[in-house]
Every structure is written in structure tokens, then in C-alpha cells.
């Protein structure tokens, strides 16, 4: 029992040390712009364009549900234009970033872990090194930069989509006018609502891509190992995303 606990502690310390080492190597790759610059644009297209349909699909339905649930909750005691307030605030502060983040943890994080894991077990990563490339600047940095810059763009569009579908649902299903919805939307709005959600989503993007790369590059043992890495990347990303969400709420919203 004590031995097992000791081994787990040592493993945990090793993992933290390994992650620190990984981030250090990543920082050392930053001056190698000639390699990561062009590849970052390719990854931005992959992360951004390819992920957009999933994020917008989720946001569209979330907007409708939020409008209906708000009206159900208010039950006539709260003015109905508050539907706009609730849809706007919730999409911007929480559901836009978090739902898109969770969806993209599955979409982007898993695909990066699988891709890099396959490259690792088929010695493609070793081949890169023998060709005088640093895997950090060739594989990791472009993905992390693409995630960090593209997630806020995706989330901004997701927020916009959610608000638009919430507005349409209010018009069609709740008999709310556009003026009333906009009145609610503007009520209590602060610029912080916007930058908070976008800043948060940048940190989600960084975390999800970093986890996908770290887990992918530590893959061992063939197809089974790649499968394990893919699952691990999704689970770690989702957990870290929720922890990070609580952390930013605590730090920036109090």
C-alpha cells in the first residue's frame, strides 16, 4: 500500500517535471520562426475552419434552449425582455466558451493526440529529429499557437450564433419583439463580458492543444497506445478546461 502510494507520488512528480521540461523545450523553439511560421498558418486553417461547424451547431441549439428556459423560469414575474439579458450574458460568459471548448477538446485535442501519437510510434518524430528539425518547432508550437489564436475567433462566432438563434426563438416562440430582446441584451452589458469570454477561450485553446501534443508525443506501443493517448487527451483537456473555467471566474469575476 505504502509502496504503491510512493510509486504514484514519484510518477506524479515525474509527470510534472516532464511537463515543465516540455514547456521549456517549447520556449526554446520560439526563435525558430522559419519553421513554425508557415506551419502555424496551416494549423490555423485546420483548427479554425474545420472546427467551426461543430462549434456553431452547438451554439445555435444552445441559444434556442436558453431563450426557452429563461422564459420558463421567469413565469411572468420577471419581465420577458430579461430573456435577452440571460441569453447574452450566459453565451458570452459561460456557455459559448465552455461548450465550444468541450466540443473542440474532443475534436481538436483528440485529433492532435492521435496524429502525433501515430507519428511517434511509426518513428516519424525520430525521423524529423534526424533531419535536423526540432519537433517542438515543427509539430507543437504551430498547433499551440493555432489553438490559442483560433479558439477566440471560433468562440466569438459561436457566441454570436447563440445570441442570434436565441433572438429568433424569442421572436418566433415567445412573442418577444426585437426591441425588447435588444433592450434585455444591452441591460447590464459590460465590455468585460466580451473580453472575459474570449480571453478564457484563448486559454482553453492553448490548454487543449498543449495537452493533445504532450499526450500524443508521449505515446508508446502501437495502435493500442495511440487509442489510449487519444482518450487520455480528451479526458485531461475536458477536466483542465473546467478547472481553468472555475479559476478564471474566481480570479476575474470576483
Amino acid at each position: 500500500m505504502i509502496e504503491r502510494l510512493g510509486r504514484k507520488t514519484v510518477d506524479a512528480i515525474k509527470a510534472v517535471g516532464g511537463f515543465g521540461h516540455f514547456v521549456g523545450d517549447l520556449a526554446r523553439a520560439v526563435p525558430d520562426v522559419a519553421v513554425w511560421g508557415r506551419l502555424t498558418l496551416v494549423q490555423m486553417r485546420r483548427v479554425g475552419v474545420d472546427s467551426l461547424p461543430v462549434a456553431l451547431f452547438i451554439a445555435a441549439f444552445t441559444g434556442v434552449v436558453l431563450a426557452l428556459q429563461a422564459s420558463y423560469t421567469f413565469t411572468g414575474t420577471v419581465p420577458l425582455y430579461f430573456v435577452g439579458t440571460l441569453v447574452g450574458k450566459t453565451m458570452m460568459l459561460e456557455l459559448g466558451p465552455v461548450l465550444a471548448g468541450l466540443a473542440l477538446a474532443g475534436r481538436v485535442g483528440a485529433s492532435m493526440a492521435a496524429e502525433l501519437g501515430t507519428m511517434k510510434v511509426t518513428e516519424q518524430v525520430d525521423a524529423l529529429e534526424t533531419l535536423a528539425y526540432d519537433p517542438q518547432s515543427f509539430l507543437v508550437l504551430p498547433r499551440v499557437l493555432a489553438g490559442t489564436t483560433m479558439f477566440p475567433v471560433i468562440v466569438a462566432l459561436a457566441i454570436l450564433t447563440g445570441i442570434v438563434t436565441g433572438w429568433i426563438a424569442s421572436l418566433v416562440l415567445l412573442d418577444l419583439s426585437t426591441q425588447e430582446f435588444l433592450k434585455g441584451l444591452k441591460l447590464f452589458y459590460r465590455f468585460k463580458d466580451t473580453w472575459f469570454g474570449l480571453f478564457k477561450s484563448a486559454t482553453f485553446g492553448c490548454t487543449i492543444t498543449l495537452v493533445g501534443c504532450v499526450v500524443g508525443l508521449s505515446t508508446r506501443g502501437g495502435a493500442e497506445g495511440v487509442g489510449r493517448s487519444t482518450t487520455r487527451a480528451v479526458v485531461y483537456s475536458a477536466v483542465l478546461l473546467l478547472v481553468l473555467d472555475a479559476f478564471w471566474a474566481l480570479v476575474l469575476l470576483r
Binding site: T118, M119, T122, E123, Q124, D126, A127, T130
Partner: peptide
């Protein structure tokens, strides 16, 4: 140094 890998390790 040129390195030829067992399963070629070509980039897919």
C-alpha cells in the same frame, strides 16, 4: 548523418 528507418518513417 543520414538515417534510414526500419519502416522508412515517411511522413504520411
Amino acid at each position: 548523418i543520414g538515417f534510414v528507418f526500419q519502416f522508412a518513417a515517411l511522413f504520411d
